[in-house]
């Protein structure tokens, strides 16, 4: 266990989290906490997350749902008197927790992010039909049917307006050099992992 109120976890965050080196610069004014539109809905405000990192509360921080609740409205960044890139730090923490497998299981934002990522890296393009269906069915077949039925009106409307092509179900369109996209993503991941001293996900 990481000792509390020692620098170990702060150093870990600085080394592994995007913009993590900013955490020590927080002056605990609480403007971010007061500015967040989702303030009442998450476990810990950014102010508290930063203090918890400094207090060495590794498990609590990485399993917190707070970073996943961020809607990237950038209110906190605009208002932070110390110019901390708070939104980016929150996303960085989310990413780090996800890679370590500590992020909360079944957290909706995390699930959607995963689906979106898996969808887009396949062909280099978002297959909206498959993405929507994957979302509907993420909680099981029965729930999926219910979700699809609830959305059928919108689906039909989109089809009429030629915004949704049912044929996308069969593979769907792709970008010109699919192999190249895959290579690019693999290389980017390799670089990032090397930088962060991680291997794979």
């Amino acid at each position: 266990m990481t000792a509390t109120y020692k620098n170990d976890f702060l150093k870990e965050v600085e080394a592994n989290v995007e913009d993590g080196q900013w955490v020590k610069m927080c002056m605990q004014c609480g403007v971010c906490a007061g500015s967040c539109p989702l303030g009442p809905h998450w476990q810990h405000s950014p102010q508290k997350i930063f203090m918890m990192i400094r207090a060495g509360k590794r498990e609590e921080v990485l399993t917190s749902d707070s970073m996943w609740m961020c809607t990237s409205c950038y209110n906190c960044i605009v208002r932070c008197p110390r110019k901390l890139p708070i939104t980016h730090i929150m996303h960085g923490l989310a990413n780090y927790a996800h890679r370590l497998g500590l992020a909360p299981k079944g957290q909706p934002t995390r699930e959607i992010a995963k689906l979106f990522w898996d969808n887009i890296v396949k062909t280099g393009r978002v297959n909206e039909l498959k993405f929507s269906l994957a979302m509907y069915f993420k909680d099981g077949f029965g729930q999926g049917v219910k979700n699809a039925m609830a959305m059928q009106g919108i689906g039909l409307g989109l089809m009429k307006a030629k915004r949704l092509n049912p044929m996308e179900m069969l593979g769907g369109h792709t970008c010109k050099d699919k192999g190249g996209i895959h290579k690019m993503i693999a290389k980017a991941r390799e670089i990032e992992d090397r930088r962060k001293g991680l291997s794979g996900h």
Partner: peptide, 14 residues
């Protein structure tokens, strides 16, 4: 000066 100390890694706890 406070900010400079934070950059050096001094931890401030209320």
């Amino acid at each position: 000066f406070y900010r400079s100390a934070q950059e050096k890694g001094v931890i401030f706890t209320k």
